[in-house]
Structures are given as structure tokens and as C-alpha cells.
Design a protein around this nucleic acid. Structure first.
Length: 128
DNA sequence: CCTATGATTGTTTCG
DNA sequence: CGAAACAATCATAGG
């Protein structure tokens, strides 16, 4: 409605709705995905990001998928199936997962506050 | 034995 | 606002 002088009022629920269906706006040139996970154990300082709705969906889907496809064990195969179904999933069904992720993020915000705070002290107290 | 990579999409973070 | 990296999972590879 009408003009919104404010740029993105940033609703409290940021989300619950699926992000605009961007037509692949995320351009990922994927130049050299050599080390996507560099410090699996060394980046503990980085607050782990909250799992996305997609991951939550995977938890459920993974179990179901393995039951129907005991042959498939690697997530790579399941992941593909997940993505395919995820795109076809009904918005209402996804909302359920979005809602989960939304709550998880709230907690994550706190972790972020500490992270920012720690960042300052880290300079002095790097090793813990 | 340990570590990294593979794939999926959504979210996070900084300037 | 945009770009880039990262989030979990599990099987597999090599030294």
C-alpha cells in the first residue's frame, strides 16, 4: 500500500514468508570451491548460524527418505531430492519450518550479542 | 584415525 | 544493498 517512505520497515517477523522467489539472483560464480569449510574446528569463535528452514525440513525428509530409499545413504542424494521437493512444497508446509527457523534465530541473536562483545575482549583474551 | 569434499537452499554477516 | 561464506548431514577418499 501506498508509498512507503521507509525502506523496508523491517517487520518483526521478518519472516515467515518465503523469500521472494528470486530468479536465481544469487550469482555464485563458484570460482574455486576448494575449501568451503575451512576451519571446521577452528572457527569455533564464529557463532554457528541457525539452521535454515531447509535444514529442518531435511531432518524430517531425511528420515522419510531413508525409509523409502534405504539404498541412499549419502545426503548428497537426499539433498537433491530435498531441493526438488522443497521447491514443490506448499507454502503452508514450508511455513511450519520457517517458523521453526524464525524462533531459532531469536536465540541466535543473543549469541551474536556475545560474539560482538567477545570480539572486543578477544583482542585481549584471545585464548580461552 | 582424522579431515575435507560432495550437494541442497536459506540465512548470516560486514561495509 | 550486495557479495560471499557458511549452516547440517553422511558416506567416501587418502596418508
Amino acid at each position: 500500500m501506498k508509498t512507503r517512505s521507509q525502506t523496508t520497515p523491517k517487520p518483526l517477523n521478518t519472516v515467515r514468508l518465503p523469500p521472494v522467489e528470486s530468479p536465481r539472483t544469487r550469482s555464485r560464480p563458484k570460482p574455486k570451491p576448494e575449501t568451503r569449510k575451512k576451519g571446521t574446528l577452528g572457527d569455533l569463535r564464529r557463532p554457528k548460524k541457525p539452521p535454515t528452514a531447509f535444514f529442518y525440513f531435511m531432518e524430517d525428509f531425511r528420515k522419510t527418505f531413508q525409509e523409502e530409499n534405504p539404498s541412499v545413504k549419502a545426503m548428497q542424494d537426499v539433498g537433491k531430492a530435498c531441493g526438488e521437493k522443497w521447491n514443490k512444497m506448499a507454502f503452508e508446509e514450508k511455513v511450519k519450518y520457517y517458523d521453526l527457523a524464525t524462533e531459532r534465530r531469536a536465540e541466535f541473536e543473543k549469541a551474536m550479542a556475545q560474539y560482538n562483545k567477545k570480539k572486543n575482549g578477544e583482542l585481549s583474551e584471545e585464548s580461552e
